[in-house]
């Protein structure tokens, strides 16, 4: 899948490390703030969520992610680099499905830009989740 924002399956430590290493190359950065979203084993009607199958509209994901990143750079001038990865396909409970890393000259803008980025991703990125329960049934999150 040729989409720099999507990752097939769970987001593993290797990917997180690789992205963080790239951000660390800039010696004018004062802080890196990150969000790692995980799949919870919520209980729904006495049944446990065992995995989520994420689906996406990849071309629109790419366009919207680029818009969000541009808006964040425009608003938070101290932000130097933003990386975003979202899972598609199956992610099991306890595994990670969203990684957002924001590097800035100073912590205050890094934290603010991170929170706003995650909120915009949740509101505007065309991704859907089908939650599979431990009895084999499923539901779509709306």
């Amino acid at each position: 899948m040729e989409n720099i924002f999507l990752c097939q399956g769970a987001i593993g430590n290797e990917l997180v490390n690789a992205i963080t290493s790239i951000h660390s190359e800039n010696k004018t950065t004062g802080g890196h703030a990150f969000f790692l979203g995980a799949v919870r084993n919520d209980v729904v009607n006495d049944k446990k969520v065992v995995e989520i199958n994420y689906s996406a509209y990849p071309e629109m994901v790419e366009n919207e992610m680029k818009s969000i990143i541009s808006e964040i750079y425009e608003k938070y001038k101290d932000v130097q680099k933003i990386s975003i990865k979202h899972s598609v396909g199956v992610v099991k409970a306890g595994e990670n499905s969203l990684f957002v890393l924001v590097s800035a000259g100073h912590r205050v803008e890094a934290f603010k830009a991170l929170e706003e980025s995650v909120n915009l991703i949740k509101a505007r990125i065309p991704i859907w989740k089908k939650e599979l329960l431990d009895d084999g049934s499923y539901f779509w999150t709306e």
Partner: peptide, 10 residues
Amino acid sequence: IALLPPFAGG
């Protein structure tokens, strides 16, 4: 054309 139900990423 795409029909897009409410987004649920994250």
